[in-house]
Simulated assay, not measured.
Amino acid sequence: MTVEGTCADEFAEVRAEFERNFAERGELGAGVHVTVDGETVVDLWGGDAGGRPWTEDTITHVWSCTKGATALCAHVLASRGELDLDAPVVRYWPEFGEHGKADTLVRHLLAHQAGLTAVREPVPPGGMLDWELMTGLLARQEPFWAPGTRHGYHALTFGHLIGEVVRRVSGMALAEFFEKEVSGPLGLDFWLTLPDDLEPLAAPTVPADRGEALPSVYVTGLSRPESMQGLLLGNTGGYVTASNTREAHAAQFGAVGGMSNARGLAQLYRPLALGGEYNGVRLMDEAQLPVMSGVAVAGFDEMLLAPTRFSLGFMKSAGNPHLPAVERGASMSEDAFGHSGMGGSLGFADPGARMSFGYAMTKMGSGLGLNARGQSLVDAVYRALGYRQAPDGTWFR
Results as ranks from 00 to 15, higher is better:
353 A>F: 01
223 S>E: 06
317 S>R: 00
273 A>V: 05
288 Q>N: 13
159 G>Y: 03
216 S>V: 15
19 E>S: 08
25 R>E: 11
292 M>W: 10
244 N>H: 14
227 S>V: 04
147 P>D: 07
125 P>V: 06
154 H>A: 00
242 A>K: 14
341 G>N: 02
80 R>G: 06
351 P>W: 00
12 A>C: 03
73 C>H: 03
309 R>D: 04
333 S>G: 08
299 G>A: 02
118 A>Y: 06
180 K>I: 15
77 L>K: 00
341 G>V: 03
46 G>A: 11
253 F>V: 14
54 W>D: 07
278 Y>C: 08
84 D>T: 11
46 G>S: 14
52 R>C: 07
51 G>V: 14
125 P>W: 04
120 R>C: 02
298 A>T: 15
185 P>H: 10
150 R>D: 10
50 G>N: 09
43 D>C: 04
180 K>N: 15
17 E>D: 14
379 D>F: 06
379 D>E: 14
220 T>Y: 15
150 R>Q: 07
72 L>S: 09
93 W>R: 09
139 A>L: 04
123 V>Y: 05
350 D>H: 03
281 V>S: 11
97 G>H: 05
340 S>D: 13
315 M>I: 01
365 G>M: 13
71 A>H: 03
287 A>T: 05
78 A>K: 01
389 Q>N: 12
356 S>E: 01
67 K>W: 04
68 G>L: 04
370 L>V: 15
190 F>D: 04
293 S>G: 12
89 V>W: 10
75 H>C: 00
382 Y>H: 03
77 L>P: 01
357 F>C: 10
199 E>T: 15
2 T>R: 13
267 Q>K: 12
134 M>H: 02
240 V>I: 14
198 L>V: 11
262 A>V: 08
348 F>R: 04
1 M>F: 11
312 L>H: 08
246 R>Q: 02
349 A>R: 10
1 M>R: 03
328 R>P: 06
215 P>M: 02
179 E>L: 13
251 A>P: 09
258 G>V: 00
304 L>I: 11
135 T>R: 13
229 Q>S: 09
230 G>E: 00
370 L>H: 02
276 G>P: 09
302 E>D: 12
191 W>K: 15
204 P>S: 12
170 S>W: 01
124 P>H: 09
124 P>A: 11
277 E>F: 09
210 R>N: 15
229 Q>R: 01
317 S>Y: 13
370 L>W: 06
390 A>G: 15
328 R>F: 06
7 C>M: 10
291 V>Q: 06
170 S>R: 08
134 M>L: 08
347 G>C: 01
342 M>W: 12
59 I>L: 15
98 E>R: 13
246 R>Y: 04
260 S>K: 08
367 G>R: 06
26 G>E: 01
333 S>C: 00
237 G>H: 05
210 R>H: 13
330 A>R: 02
73 C>F: 12
171 G>K: 08
237 G>W: 05
339 H>V: 02
69 A>H: 01
89 V>G: 12
47 G>V: 10
251 A>W: 02
117 T>C: 11
241 T>A: 15
204 P>N: 14
363 K>Q: 15
97 G>A: 11
206 V>W: 12
203 A>K: 03
60 T>Y: 02
248 A>H: 02
363 K>S: 11
255 A>K: 03
